[in-house]
């Protein structure tokens, strides 16, 4: 469903993505692992065109989307994103955060948007926090609202950029639970994370990224038990201390 071919990106003199190839089929949960600075976030941001790649192609359902003729807004409506720092709209309640996309971008009617918003917030377990503002919510709650917000747009796939890295340990569980539930419902997901438990148990595939390239990719059991590339091996060793 999502295919990335030969992606290159420079930030100034820094060659961040050095020819990345990745394919994500419908329903797959791909976890991208790797040391910091390897370009994982950049890769994610290229997929929904928040960052424009310098070279290479990105395909969504066979259609090349990094094309001058295609509006990035259209792409972003098909692919949702959940950020490390939640990025909830501080001036809106939880419910309004979820429905603002429906109201303004999808031009949905207020009543229906409201209904869907409530459904989604119930799905992530926050029915009692509809009228709360982000500042009144814990980190875990904010991230769950953020997931509901991304799901509201009925995306074909959702990208997760280190969703639990900014959370206190006691809130990581609740967010991972929501993500697991989402995966079991068949959502296509690309997740950048350091949570190895999630990678092992929920991912259908693991891609190891280092210094701008995907060095290895395989099923979780393959990757964690016998990584082929030497850098991958070093990484797994360090993780499984």
């Amino acid at each position: 469903m999502i295919r990335v071919e030969g992606l290159h990106k420079w930030f100034g003199e820094n060659h961040v993505l050095r020819g990345v190839d990745l394919e994500v089929k419908k329903g797959e949960v791909v976890v991208v692992l790797g040391p910091s600075g390897s370009g994982k976030s950049t890769l994610l941001r290229c997929i929904n065109l928040l960052v424009e790649p310098d070279e290479g192609a990105i395909f969504l359902d066979g259609v090349r989307v990094n094309d001058r003729r295609i509006r990035p807004e259209w792409v972003r409506q098909q692919v949702g994103m959940v950020f490390q720092s939640f990025n909830l709209f501080a001036h809106l309640t939880a419910l309004k955060n979820v429905t603002v996309g429906l109201n303004k971008v999808k031009k949905m009617g207020a009543a229906e948007a409201d209904r869907r918003g409530r459904e989604l917030l119930a799905r992530v377990g926050l029915s009692d926090k509809l009228g709360a503002y982000p500042a009144q919510l814990s980190g875990g709650q904010q991230q769950r609202v953020s997931i509901a917000r991304a799901l509201a747009m009925e995306p074909k796939a959702v990208l997760f950029d280190e969703p639990t890295s900014a959370l206190d340990p006691e809130y990581i569980r609740e967010v991972l639970d929501v993500m697991s539930a989402l995966a079991s419902e068949g959502m296509t997901m690309v997740v950048v994370t350091h949570e190895m438990g999630f990678a092992r148990n929920v991912a259908t595939r693991v891609a190891f990224m280092s210094e701008g390239e995907i060095l290895e990719s395989g099923t979780p059991s393959e990757f964690f038990s016998s990584p082929k590339h030497e850098r991958a091996r070093a990484f797994v060793d360090k993780i499984l201390q």
Binding site: N48, L50, Q77, F83, S85, N87, V105
Partner: peptide, 27 residues
């Protein structure tokens, strides 16, 4: 207005003008 919220608005598929209006200006 934190840059992250601007990104979040874009990620939802808002046009630059919509981001300006509903995310930046409102705050």
């Amino acid at each position: 207005v934190p840059r992250g919220q601007v990104e979040a608005g874009q990620a939802l598929g808002m046009s630059p003008w919509q981001v300006m209006r509903h995310v930046v200006l409102a705050q």
